[in-house]
């Protein structure tokens, strides 16, 4: 898994490439920790190159949500494929995340 970040105005766009699983999710957590430490308040996570996310990955996103809630930040997820979308849906997590079809729609009014 690779993480590439770019900054657009005050929004951090985080492109993830590869599976988010028990071996790679700690790396993602580290990246998220940095965002929170640097007091980034607006984060978009681009899922277009993610084909699988396991429970440790989902937990990593839940933790990010918890932390951003405390710091007054928020984040959006975009460009999930159907398989990944299903994983969020069966765990009902699609209800707590802001999910957008495309990156540009996620950037809108953020």
């Amino acid at each position: 898994m690779n993480i590439n970040t770019e900054k657009k105005n005050e929004v951090i766009i985080c492109h993830i490439d590869g599976d988010i699983n028990i071996n790679t999710s700690p790396q993602l957590r580290k990246a998220f920790e940095e965002f929170v430490e640097k007091d980034m308040k607006k984060i978009i996570v681009d899922f277009s190159s993610v084909s699988y996310i396991d429970s440790s990955g989902l937990a990593t996103f839940i933790e990010l949500l918890q932390r951003l809630k405390k710091s007054g930040g928020s984040f959006r997820i975009c460009s999930m494929n159907q398989k990944v979308k299903n994983i969020f849906e069966v765990t009902k997590l699609h209800k707590i995340f802001e999910i957008f079809d495309t990156q540009s729609s996620a950037e809108n009014n953020f």
């Binding site: 028990i22 957590r29 440790s56 989902l58 933790e63």
Partner: peptide
């Protein structure tokens, strides 16, 4: 046993599984 995950992450996973 199988993974090196932070305790906070494990706690969240447990909550997810128990709610399932």
């Amino acid at each position: 046993e199988h993974a090196k995950l932070a305790d906070e992450i494990i706690d969240i996973i447990i909550k997810m599984k128990l709610s399932l």
